[in-house]
Computed example of a mutant assay.
Amino acid sequence: MKEISVSELKQWQDEGKEFQLIDVREPFEYEMSNLGGQNIPLANVLLEKDKISKDIPVVMQCRSGARSAAALNQLEQNGYTNVYNLKGGILAWAAEIDPELSVY
């Protein structure tokens, strides 16, 4: 499984690198706080895989990294080779990048 740290993701954002961010948390979690990614809950990842790019890097993200790792494994089993797990999830983002971000 390929992983990306929150500092690497921040660098991608700052550089304007093209990538897709998928938040696999539930909609109520996404509404509380998010990193601006597209919300596709874990249970729907395979149902909505047509919304997930195969042409650019895709970063899967959740609260701590566990659900996004599960989503990444599902996608890899379906032929995706361009997916990364955000190590530590939104909790790591709040701790290292944006302490103002509200987390639960």
Rank of each mutant, 00 (worst) to 15 (best):
K87C: 07
G88K: 03
W93V: 06
S68M: 02
V83E: 09
L46I: 08
Q74H: 11
Y104T: 15
W12P: 04
G36I: 07
V58M: 05
L91F: 15
P27T: 01
V24N: 12
I97A: 02
G89P: 00
L101K: 05
Q13I: 04
K10C: 09
S7R: 15
T81Q: 13
Y84C: 11
E18K: 15
L42M: 14
S102L: 11
F19S: 09
E31K: 09
L46H: 06
M60I: 14
A92T: 12
L47K: 07
L86A: 05
M1L: 11
I97L: 13
P57G: 08
W12H: 14
F19M: 09
G89W: 07
F19E: 12
Q77A: 13
G88F: 10
K51N: 08
V45L: 10
K87L: 14
Q38I: 03
W12T: 11
G16A: 09
D55L: 10
V103L: 10
Q13D: 12
Y80A: 05
V103F: 11
E18M: 01
P99Q: 09
Q38Y: 01
E48R: 08
R25N: 14
M32G: 13
A69D: 10
L72K: 10
A71W: 03
K17T: 10
Q11L: 11
Q38N: 08
S68C: 14
Q77D: 12
L101V: 05
R67K: 10
V24P: 05
N73T: 09
D23T: 01
G37C: 02
E29S: 07
A92E: 11
M60C: 13
S53W: 12
V59W: 03
Q77W: 02
L46F: 04
Q13L: 13
L47H: 04
E96L: 12
V24K: 05
Q38V: 03
E96N: 15
K49L: 09
N39W: 06
V58H: 00
D23L: 08
A92V: 04
K17S: 08
N85A: 00
A66C: 00
V6D: 00
R25D: 00
P41S: 05
G88M: 02
Y30D: 00
L35R: 01
V58D: 00
K51L: 12
I97R: 04
R25I: 07
A71L: 09
V45E: 00
A43F: 02
K17Q: 13
P41V: 02
Q20S: 14
G37Q: 00
E15F: 10
E48K: 05
I56E: 09
L75N: 00
E100N: 15
P27C: 06
N73W: 09
S33N: 13
L35F: 03
S53R: 05
N85T: 06
A70F: 10
L47F: 06
G16D: 00
